Simulated assay, not measured.
Amino acid sequence: MRAGAYEARVEDYVALLKPRVMSLVVFTAFVGLLLAPGGINPFVGAVAILCIAIGAGASGALNMWYDSDIDAVMSRTANRPIPAGRIERDHALVLGLVLSSFSVCLLGLATNWLAAGLLAFTVFFYAVVYTVWLKRSTPQNIVIGGAAGAFPPMIGWAAVTGTISLESVVLFLIIFLWTPPHFWALALYKQSDYGAANIPMLPNVAGERVTKIQIFVYSLLLVGSTLIPGLTGFMGTVYSVVAIASGAGFIWLAWALLRTSETVAMKKAGRALFTYSLSYLALIFLALLADHAVRLLGWL
Rank of each mutant, 00 (worst) to 15 (best):
L97D: 10
V94C: 06
D12K: 03
F183E: 02
S192N: 10
L227Q: 13
T131Q: 06
L93A: 10
L273I: 07
K190R: 15
V238K: 00
D291V: 02
G4P: 09
T211Y: 02
E7W: 04
V169P: 03
T111L: 00
R271D: 10
A92I: 04
S225M: 08
L119G: 00
A72T: 05
V21H: 15
L34W: 13
S277F: 01
I244C: 12
V14Y: 02
P83N: 13
L221K: 01
R80W: 10
T28Q: 07
V73E: 09
T122E: 06
N141I: 05
R136V: 12
L16E: 00
G156E: 00
T161D: 03
V242S: 07
F121R: 02
S261C: 09
T226V: 14
F274K: 10
A245V: 15
S137R: 15
G117H: 03
G230N: 04
G32N: 05
V26I: 15
R86G: 06
A272M: 12
E208D: 14
V10Q: 04
V294C: 12
L278R: 05
L188A: 09
S279Q: 13
L258P: 04
G85I: 13
T28I: 09
C105G: 07
I251F: 08
H292I: 04
L35T: 03
A150Q: 04
S219F: 09
V129A: 09
T111N: 00
I70S: 10
V143G: 04
F176K: 15
A72W: 08
